[in-house]
């Protein structure tokens, strides 16, 4: 419990201090190398994403134009895109900066991703192996034909309309304020080709839970809006606290058609669909919920994270 509170206090200390967000990210990402574990996490979850894109999304990875939004500080996403599709694809970063120090870890992570060996053609594998010695991440990305846009505004992205087949983000959009999220989903709809797939993973948990697993994973639902804003409304702590059903509504408002919403339940960390979420552990007692969250469904209160898979209708106009 104390670890979660300590983390919250440290984040608030940096997040409320002018320039503190930048300093915090510099210290943790650039100096302490904390994003190294992010590569390990991506390496673990990416095979599952590929399974969902190919299974539910009926996509074939080879030759696909993939856009990853806010891939963070490591070039794992373009490298795995290259291995799977033959092109590094597109990467847009709002907060993240690709750092040279994570390049070789990303190379090792992408090559070690648990996918059948035949998924990575030999020529591509060899090319990626050579990139682990590149000194600059830009040089490596140029080699694999990746297109990177940093410092972008998520509501106005520098990508042409109907130009990508798959848009993916993970653990990013829950930090966007609802207006910004609407703007991003509208851009996502514009940029996807008709029939293209939007794949976004939201971590609905209170992020202090990541510092201490004894913390209720939906503890942030206990706080009324103004109190939450006061405590966590800074760039390092903000979570939009949208319920899964509210997120689904935003996708539909943007014009997307639902393919599937897979909810991650605890304690088993398994992804399930629809009513099966009721098997999961509840994130917070209903009695403790702030008034805004009282209409939440039982499934919503048992959803730790959710993978939203939506399609741009084949007949859609941009």
């Amino acid at each position: 419990m104390w670890r979660a509170l300590m983390k919250g206090a440290i984040l608030a200390g940096f997040g409320r201090f002018p320039g503190g967000t930048r300093l915090y990210r510099h210290l943790t990402r650039e100096r302490m190398g904390t994003q190294a574990t992010h590569v390990d996490k991506l390496r673990r979850v990416w095979p599952g994403y590929v399974g969902v894109w190919e299974g539910h999304g009926t996509l074939r990875m080879e030759g696909l134009r993939v856009w990853v939004h806010e891939a963070g500080w490591t070039p794992y996403a373009p490298l795995i895109n290259y291995l799977l599709t033959g092109s590094g694809g597109i990467l847009t970063n709002v907060e993240g900066r690709l750092l040279d120090k994570y390049l070789s870890r990303a190379v090792n992570g992408s090559l070690g991703t648990a996918l059948p060996p035949e998924r990575f053609p030999r020529g591509r594998r060899r090319r990626v192996e050579g990139l682990r010695w590149c000194m600059r991440v830009e040089d490596a990305l140029r080699e694999i034909g990746a297109e990177v846009h940093q410092d972008v505004n998520p509501a106005s992205l520098p990508l042409p309309s109907s130009s990508v087949d798959l848009c993916h983000s993970g653990g990013t959009l829950e930090h966007y304020r609802p207006g910004r999220l609407r703007g991003f989903l509208a851009e996502c709809f514009r940029i996807l080709r008709p029939g293209g797939v939007a794949s976004h993973v939201f971590d609905h948990r209170d992020h202090l839970f990541h510092a201490d697993a004894r913390w209720p994973f939906l503890a942030h639902f206990a706080l009324p809006g103004p109190v939450y804003e006061l405590l966590c409304g800074h760039p390092l702590g903000y979570h939009n606290r949208l319920l899964p059903t509210e997120v689904e509504r935003l996708f539909e408002e943007a014009g997307f058609e639902r393919i599937v919403v897979r909810r991650m339940i605890l304690p088993g960390r398994e992804y399930v669909e629809e009513k099966a979420a009721l098997r999961g552990k509840q994130g917070l007692s209903r009695m403790l919920l702030a008034p805004r969250f009282r209409p939440a469904t039982d499934e919503d209160l048992r959803t730790a994270a959710a993978h939203y898979l939506y399609r741009k209708p084949a007949a859609a106009q941009d």
Partner: peptide, 13 residues
Amino acid sequence: RFRGADGEILLDQ
């Protein structure tokens, strides 16, 4: 210059 097992150049820097 790095060469793979088959003699192919992996990287020259």
